[in-house]
């Protein structure tokens, strides 16, 4: 059960794995080519956690801080959802880029080298894959925001029934 929750975020992120390479995905899972085991940081979880927290905060902001009669329609919700998604895009982009800049991503995942150590193929393209992962993080953030909206809209005063009339 514990393992289920430990891998839950990663499995969810893998729904949108096609946006970026398998090698970046393995890195985010914490795969360490040096040991052949998943003993590096499970970045899906840490990035997922940032995204979850940000989505929750923006949801709470919308339903409990702003909660304004003139900003409580379906389009208001959509604006907040999009804002959340855009933030998540940059969070995803930045996290991968900073890992790359810090040299945390193992070389064997970054490049395919020949016997002399020359790069034959770049396995993870920076920065394009940072954006790609950002896009998948964007979609995840939208899902988180939607789920949090379903779960926590009940106690809002005015925005309670957005985005839907009643749900």
């Amino acid at each position: 059960m514990g393992e289920f929750f430990e891998l839950l975020l990663g499995n969810m992120y893998c729904w949108f794995k096609s946006f970026y390479s398998d090698f970046l995905s393995q890195y985010l899972w914490g795969y360490n080519p040096a040991s052949g085991a998943y003993d590096l940081e499970l970045r899906y979880n840490s990035i997922g956690l940032y995204t979850l927290v940000i989505s929750f905060v923006i949801m709470a902001l919308y339903y409990y801080v702003i909660d304004h009669p003139r900003f409580c329609k379906w389009w208001s919700w959509l604006i907040m959802a999009l804002l959340n998604s855009v933030i998540a895009l940059f969070v995803g982009y930045y996290c991968v880029l900073s890992d790359y800049n810090a040299g945390i991503i193992p070389d064997e995942l970054m490049y395919l080298r020949d016997e002399n150590g020359e790069v034959v193929q770049t396995l993870i393209s920076i920065p394009s894959e940072c954006w790609s992962f950002g896009i998948s993080n964007m979609i995840m953030a939208f899902i988180f925001f939607l789920v949090f909206s379903f779960l926590f809209h009940w106690w809002s005063r005015v925005a309670k029934y957005s985005p839907f009339i009643k749900f």
Partner: peptide, 11 residues
Amino acid sequence: LLTPRLGHFDF
């Protein structure tokens, strides 16, 4: 190993 490979697999 992750590479070299053809096609796809997950660990």
